[in-house]
Design a protein around this nucleic acid. Structure first.
Lengths: 189, 189, 189, 189
DNA sequence: TCTTAATCGAGACGGTACGTCGTGTCTTGAG
DNA sequence: CTCAAGACACGACGTACCGTCTCGATTAAGA
């Protein structure tokens, strides 16, 4: 019976958030900025998102949800392409957003959960699918624990993103894979 | 002519910071809180540390600098013990401090550098030493890149600390090592 | 052709406004409160009243519009009775409503005009009638300016209402009249 | 031992408040405006004043505290001059401030008290002194109640200020005094 | 009797100001 | 010069209330 949520306002908020964040970095954007840029009252933001970080996360998810599935045939190559894409994204402007969201997640359990489920979990599922295919095809060890494998493959990339001790990029992904692969493949000989 | 630094004040600041942070979590502690608890003027804190996070980092380093070197003889066992110690620490109260410091490091380049050099780098050097010993003894591949290996071994643990998608602990360390080891050892056959 | 105004809604709004204001004081009542209590949409309020204060004024006028005309015969006594009624009302719950309306009138010209004409003016006309009768009967000076006299008689009561420096009540009205009367009556000697 | 209140900041706040209010009217001035104009943090305002109205009242008191005592010799003339000054002030820019403060006082007991004691009471004391002198000199009735007399003399002026039903100004003051005087003077004959 | 348009309850909306919080700097008076 | 205390400038926060708007449902007059 009551007025329904204004979808246009939602869009303007997310678009403005994305624009502002990519122009000034997430640290330099305030809720007031987003509201002003979106032509929206601050209350409207707080009505639908619990925090600035939640808005930015929604924007990020829209930005990085291409769901491209054009992967090579062999598992090794497929994993390599997926890792490279992650490494490249981590090294891009979006990497900064992700770092910021992980930072905000420390000490905000709800945001952490949301991040884990909606961003991290979603991408992880895609990595898992590749590994499962690899097991099914016999390219990967049949007793491989998918979660362990994913941690080992992507953990190093996250580490570089968050600590910044080494460069990210295609080469980084390849190095990690080279070290890890022997532990994953079916016939090490 | 000038008065010298009050060492007792430094101690009270670090002790209070540690106490407050471990009692209320790092997010809920302000500089004023630390100053009040330490019976110290805020200026005294800012005279010697650049930010709240720097204080906490000093406290953390004090807490986690045991420098125990009682490692087993074989490289596999030595790495395993080191990884377990890290995983256990990540799962303890100190893990929360570390998460907070990583969070604060995003968007504070000076702190990030400090964290990288004083906490991360220091511990990494110990891990590197173990791997170097393993190469020298022939247990590890002679062409192994130490940095890559360290990222692969410890990245998964950091990932779990910062994302919280899986438990930390001795078992977690062992799982990671089991997957990674084939890529590190000298003669996989 | 069109639907007509819902009289029941009007009643519920005024009743709820009165109830809320007398229970919580006028300052602590919002338009949303009134709408919720009346089971009415906010738009319905704004369709028929220009502001919250206008609603309260309508409620006040309903409350204080007895139009009793049972006044004593002599002008002195009639004025005294009228002043006492005003003083008593000012000291009652309704006094608080009036204070609030005067307050809201500062800085809201339309409300001020409305208040002046519908509440203030209406009651003032009754006071004027009494004085005019007194002039006609020879009890009051024939050259008396009615408006000046009304200001002098009722100004002190309004002052006490709005500044709160002294008590209101029957005795207050009598004191004022005692001081003022010599300036009003026809033959002071 | 601690830093003391910054008197210069206090001055800047009051000056800015006065300037802004006299340029834009009290309704259109916000605490942020005052803080910005004074080059002061909002916190500094809230540290020393409970509300915007309290700031404005302080400024008002400074503005209207001339304490001129150059009054004529006869009591009638002295009262007339004092009333005229009040009427003129009520009709000036400051009148608007006073109206606003009275408005804010309804529903803010602390402010009301402050206004009563510091602004209203202070000026009332001066009026009382004049009447007391008049009693002592025999010009006024020896049994005159000072408070009643003051209410009767000034109540009409306040009424015009706050209701706005009639003009303020020198003439208004004279009219009131003309009506009231017979009730005050010693020998009505 | 069906149409049609204004009404209703509900509540989301844009906007403005609020008062609070935390940071890092500055000032005071004591040692 | 250092210290404890705490006032300061600044900037962002999240809340409150206002008056407008949009929805779907209801209701009464006019076709």
């Amino acid at each position: 019976m009551a007025r329904t949520r204004d979808e246009a306002a939602r869009r303007r908020v997310l678009d403005s958030a994305r624009d502002l964040v990519s122009r000034r970095g997430p640290r330099a954007v305030t809720v007031d900025d987003i509201a002003a840029a979106a032509g929206v009252g601050k209350q409207t933001i707080y009505r639908w998102w619990p925090s600035k970080a939640a808005v930015i996360m929604d924007a990020l998810i829209e930005l990085t949800d291409p769901a491209r599935d054009d992967l090579p045939d062999t598992t090794y190559e497929a994993v390599r392409v997926q890792m490279r894409r992650v490494a490249v994204m981590f090294g891009s402007r979006n990497g900064e957003l992700i770092r910021e969201l992980v930072a905000d997640s420390q000490g905000d359990a709800a945001l952490a959960k949301d991040f884990r489920e909606r961003f991290f979990g979603h991408r992880r599922a895609r990595g898992a699918a590749t590994l499962e295919r690899g097991i099914a095809s016999g390219e990967l060890r049949p007793d491989l624990d998918i979660d362990d494998a994913l941690d080992v493959l992507y953990g190093p990339l996250w580490l570089r993103l968050l600590i910044g001790h080494r460069r990210l990029g295609r080469a980084g992904a390849d190095e990690v894979l080279a070290v890890v692969w022997p532990g994953l493949q079916n016939q090490p000989g």
